[in-house]
């Protein structure tokens, strides 16, 4: 009975653990190579500058900033601090970040800061912010780059993704793509 079970286990192992994932890899790589390899973005010279789906850290005032990442968007791992809603460390971090954000964006009122911008995402790799979180940074970025806010509005709009099928999820701005577009604008 043990021998029979081992044989069955090995047969199923070959089907589920070897044939299935390899077949899926083969088909995906042929039919959808870009997505299957991680939606990597390359610059004009072919160098990889990131992935469309993975957030990056921006601290320079001339870029739009993304959400908080306790792992600094290091995508060799993933994670967050897992602060409970009652954790004093969460309150402390938030108050510090509010103060820093208001200092860097003098025109913004505290109650207008949307919650997504100053909270840690689940993955620590969230590439998106809410459209409102992009809007309140326009003034700062425009000033740092000597651009008209109208130009930035157009860029934000172009890099805003709507709800899937018009219903599911939330409208959002891809910060990585937005900042790439921003750099392209300058040239």
């Amino acid at each position: 009975m043990i021998w029979k079970n081992l044989r069955l286990s090995l047969v199923l192992l070959l089907i589920c653990g070897v044939a299935y994932p390899l077949a899926m890899t083969g088909i995906s790589q042929v039919v959808m190579p870009a997505q299957a390899s991680g939606s990597l973005i390359t610059d004009a010279s072919g160098k990889v500058v990131g992935s469309e789906l993975i957030g990056q850290t921006f601290t320079d005032p001339k870029y739009f900033w993304g959400r908080i990442s306790s792992i600094d968007n290091n995508a060799s791992g993933s994670g967050s601090n897992n602060y409970a809603p009652s954790n004093p460390a969460l309150i402390e971090r938030t108050q510090k970040d509010i103060a820093a954000f208001l200092a860097a964006n003098p025109g913004v009122k505290q109650e207008d800061i949307p919650a997504d911008l100053l909270t840690n995402s689940a993955s620590g790799l969230d590439p998106h912010i809410s459209p409102k979180a992009a809007q309140i940074q326009v003034e700062r970025v425009a000033k740092a780059r000597n651009l008209e806010p109208v130009q930035l509005q157009a860029l934000i709009e172009a890099n805003t993704e709507g709800r899937s099928l018009g219903v599911f999820g939330e409208p959002r701005v891809n910060v990585v793509k937005l900042n790439i577009a921003l750099d392209a604008l300058k040239k």
């Binding site: 959400r67 602060y83 997504d116 998106h128």
Partner: peptide, 10 residues
């Protein structure tokens, strides 16, 4: 926006 700590924008 609700409790966004530990959630993804999308």
């Amino acid at each position: 926006m609700g409790s966004m700590e530990g959630k993804e924008v999308r």
